[in-house]
Design a protein around this nucleic acid. Structure first.
Lengths: 230, 230
DNA sequence: GGCGGTCTGACGGTTTGCTGACAATCTCCG
DNA sequence: CGGAGATTGTCAGCAAACCGTCAGACCGCC
């Protein structure tokens, strides 16, 4: 089983990450400061590390450098605060493999984690390339390349639209509330409460439904949310 | 056993919540002000907290913040008064996981509690996805998708109709009084005294019974209420 | 500076829910 | 058996809730 180490001092965030990663089938360990994080990383040799740069005690940069100096080469994904452009660069120079800017959508992070692991894993002969494409109606969603085909034709979706579609797809057949969608697509702290979700759903319908006014797959469940049907 | 802490100063409401939650099999503790609530939450570490925002002494916001600052990450469901839109947002920003607007139907609250616990629960591989479908006659009720099938065909129900049906289903075989239904579906401050329930029952019969005038499943119990039979 | 992507608030259409009057039915009892 | 009273069923109209839509603002990026 793939093991992931999360080095994050904010309990809420750590909790949310653990949950979502575990749902995806990873084995998760959390360290809430830099020192512990480094110890666990050296000791436990996880397959991937999610590392907040802003940490009490030993900060993320030092953890990362120490880790690389100790010869550990597992992929590291760093979490940076918005606008800390310099931090990203510095992190990447120190040997991070990717970064995500807070606040981030869970799906974005999951996608990047998956990408890093796929890149790191030696492609097994006969192994497939990540999760299989999902289909509904005449639409095919290929997570690995963030591509959507409709009747074999590529449909350009914006990032938000794609994430929203995946979020609905992950719980296909079940009602997904607007709040859930906000959490999963927009970020761990839902702060958008207006017609945002509806607008994006409308756009998805326009691009993926034959008759957007009478959708057959992306359905409205009044008073509850939305539901995706094959 | 799953333990839930209810922080609510209104005794009637607290009592009602305790009752209903206990019927669902939860172990319930009640705190009637913010200070006690915080203490019990930190001390007892319940699996979930239902938190009224409007509290004497230390209000819900402060409880929530203090709780999160103390590193407690259990899901919190907040109760807000209708129209206090800003409160919802503020609550969510402070780390609440969901909210319910007063007055609320007990069933709605129970559904949300269940959803939060399911999300927090360790994802058993091969675990199912929520409660199984219920059947009576040729009718199948699927809570997860808020869908009703009749003879395999989807029957569109309005939100109230669906909730009402679930309420009857929960006590299948037993008489459910109009007052119970009002409490569970409409809200604890049941102020609808006219033919509301009957109207909705009639609509359910029209949609789900072969002969709505001689119902075989959604039965009237004169002077008492209604009863649902397989 | 233009452009695509995103978010928001206002607006309007449609659905849904509620109500109260009236009709139908049941129960009890003379 | 018949009738009064109590209880439930039905209906249509109104009001509110809810969602889809859109234009405009904003913002980061080329």
């Amino acid at each position: 089983m793939t093991r992931i180490l999360v080095v994050e001092d904010n309990p809420d965030l750590a909790y949310g990450l653990r949950n979502n990663l575990e749902i995806e089938g990873y084995q998760v360990e959390v360290a809430d400061d830099g020192t512990k994080g480094l110890a666990r990383a050296r000791d436990g040799r996880p397959d991937l590390i999610i590392l907040d740069l802003m940490l009490p005690g030993m900060d993320g940069f030092r953890v990362l450098r120490a880790l690389r100096e100790a010869g550990r080469t597992m992929p590291v994904l760093i979490l940076t605060a918005r606008g800390e452009e310099a931090d990203k660069v510095r992190g990447l120079r120190l040997g991070a493999d990717d970064y995500v800017t807070k606040p981030f959508g869970v799906l974005e992070l999951l996608a990047r984690v998956e990408a890093l692991l796929r890149r790191a894993a030696p492609p097994l002969p006969g192994g497939n390339g990540g999760p299989p494409p999902e289909r509904f109606g005449d639409v095919e969603v290929i997570p690995a390349s963030r591509t959507v085909l409709r009747g074999g034709q590529s449909v350009p979706l914006t990032p938000k639209e794609f994430d929203l579609l995946v979020a609905l797809l992950r719980r296909r057949g079940a009602v997904v509330t607007r709040l859930d969608l906000l959490r999963e697509v927009w970020g761990y702290s839902a702060e958008v409460l207006s017609r945002t979700v509806d607008t994006h759903v409308a756009e998805l319908r326009r691009k993926l439904e034959n008759d957007p006014a009478a959708p057959r797959h992306i359905l409205t469940v009044r008073k509850s949310g939305y539901r995706l049907e094959r």
